[in-house]
Amino acid sequence: MHTVIRFIIAGIIVASGLLVMFGLSSARAQSSVLSNEQLSLIRQNCQSTKSTLNQLHMTDALLRVNRGQVYEALSTKLMDRFNARLSNNQLDNKATVSVSTSYNSALNIFRSNYKAYEERLSDTLKMDCSADPSGFYWAIDDARSKRERVHGDVQRLHRLIDDYRSAVNDFLLNYDRTQR
C-alpha cells in the first residue's frame, strides 16, 4: 500500500516538474524571439496587418463554403449512393465503404479544424495589437499552424478521393472477371 502511494506521489512530482519545465521553456522561447525592435515593428504595422488578416479571414470563409459544398456533394450524392447500390445488388462493397468512411471522418476533421482556425483568427482580429504586440504575434503564429492543419486536411481529402476512385476501379475489374 505504501509503495503504491509512493509511486503516485513520485508520479505527481515528475509530472509537475515536466509541466513547469515545459511552461518555462515555452515562455523562454516566446520571450527570446521578440526583441524590442520587433515589438515596435509589430506596433508600427499593426493596422496594415489587421487589414491583411481581415481580407484573409473573408476569402478563407468563402473558400470554406465553396470547397465544403463540393466535398459534401461528393460524399452524399455519389459515394454513399454507389455504396448503397452495391449493397442493394448484394455485391461486395467493403472496400468502397471503408474508403468513404475514412473520407467522411476526414471531412469531419476538416470541419472541426477549420472551425478552430476561424475562431483563432477572429480572436486575433479582436486583439489590440498596439497594446499587446507580443500576444498579437503569438496569436497569428497559432492561427498559422491551425491553417496549415486545415491545408493538411484538404490534401488528405484529395488523397481519399483518389482512393475511392481506385476502389471503384478494382470493383470494376472484379466485376468483369466474374462476368466472363
Partner: peptide, 22 residues
C-alpha cells in the same frame, strides 16, 4: 472539381509576409 483548388495552401500568415519581423 474538388481537386481543382488546393485550398488553404500557401503561407499568408507568415510573419515575414505580414511584415511583423525583419
Amino acid at each position: 472539381k474538388a481537386k481543382a483548388v488546393d485550398a488553404f495552401n500557401g503561407d499568408p500568415l507568415n510573419p515575414e509576409l505580414l511584415e511583423l519581423v525583419e
